[in-house]
């Protein structure tokens, strides 16, 4: 099963990313061992230059990771045709349990790498690069995850056997089954809608509040609320967003919307969701950095921009969710197609 062009591209991409990060981690260890900003000898100068190489390597690795994440979903979509009973990416994921783990790991890696690159850029804008040690320690933690990602992908794809009859999203997300996925689908859409829209309102209010006032509490609240909003949106996708997009009360698949016949609406939706969540988490995550004197002006300069990006991304998510609810003839409640 490995000899599928998409799988080959994914494995090659992951291997390259891993090699680049290993190189970055090796240099990072060197920097960690000998870093001393008070000195200005040749070794310190060389170490400073090496940090440039590390940031370049990591930025590329993040770029590859984002592309690889999309390619992974695309490949799952493409592969579903090979499995009897699979009608979308869910079928491919179910063909072998490890697929879900890879997906989860890719989301974790995406956020990990994106935060790393972001904080690195903030750090490089200061005179004394105060985050140096913290940065390289987290880098060392990211590398094993990348190794695990490559290993799991190999295990997943080599374990795929096209003759297997897999369950498609219709049976995975069908109400009445047991398991996490159908529990998600079984969430009463009414309640999920209330939770989703209340959290979305809280998000918008908190972002607006943070834009006006520079208080720590607002940022902490935004951080916590964004984390909840992310989880709630994922549940909402399965519970009511997808039925509205597909205009079918029994269709709960989170991946079908990436397909051609739904106008690829899933791509703007997920990109906006991830962007909104990423920039919504940033102000809260940067709070410890504000206490560092040299980092404070940098964070304050950029925070406004993060909040605005997050706000726009949230609005895009809301627009995509609300559009079919308001303007399509399909009604999830009332039991009739209006």
């Amino acid at each position: 099963m490995i000899l599928h062009p998409g799988i080959l591209a994914l494995l090659l991409g992951s291997a390259i990313t891993l090699v680049m990060c290993l190189q970055a981690a090796r240099l990072g260890l060197e920097v960690l061992a000998h870093w001393d900003p008070t000195r200005s000898d040749e070794r310190q100068l060389m170490l400073e230059r090496k940090t440039d190489l590390i940031s370049t390597l990591m930025s590329y690795a993040l770029g590859f990771q984002i592309v690889a994440g999309l390619l992974y979903l695309y490949t799952l979509e493409d592969l579903h045709r090979l499995f009897i009973g699979a009608m979308c990416a869910t079928g491919t994921l179910n063909a072998n349990e490890i697929g879900w783990m890879v997906l989860l790991l890719k989301i974790v890696l995406f956020f990990g790498a994106a935060f790393w690159v972001h904080f690195n850029q903030l750090d490089l804008r200061t005179e004394d690069t105060p985050l140096m040690r913290a940065k390289f320690r987290t880098l060392l933690a990211l590398v094993p995850l990348l190794g695990l990602d490559l290993y799991l992908q190999v295990a997943y794809f080599s374990g795929l056997n096209p003759e297997i009859i897999t369950s498609c999203c219709g049976s995975l997300f069908r109400l009445g089954n047991t398991g996490v996925a159908s529990d998600l689908a079984g969430q009463p859409p009414g309640q999920t809608m209330v939770v989703f829209f209340s959290l979305a309102t809280v998000q918008l209010v908190l972002i607006g509040f943070c834009l006006r006032k520079r208080t720590a509490i607002g940022r902490y609240l935004l951080f916590v609320s964004t984390a909840f909003f992310f989880l709630a949106t994922l549940v909402a996708v399965v519970s009511f967003i997808s039925p509205y997009i597909y205009q079918m009360p029994t269709h709960h698949c989170p991946f079908d919307m990436l397909q051609h016949h739904y106008n690829y609406i899933g791509y703007p939706f997920y990109i906006a969701l991830f962007t909104g969540v990423f920039f919504g988490l940033l102000p809260g995550l940067s709070l410890p950095g504000v206490r560092i004197a040299s980092l404070r002006p940098v964070i304050e300069r950029f925070e406004h921009r993060w909040l605005w990006i997050s706000l726009v991304a949230h609005l895009i998510v809301l627009l995509i969710v609300l559009w079919p609810i308001l303007f399509s003839p399909f009604k999830l409640f009332g039991g009739a197609f209006g």
Partner: peptide, 10 residues
């Protein structure tokens, strides 16, 4: 997409 991953990345 595949083509880009196979050639540009390396």
């Amino acid at each position: 997409f595949i083509l880009g991953m196979l050639t540009v990345t390396p």
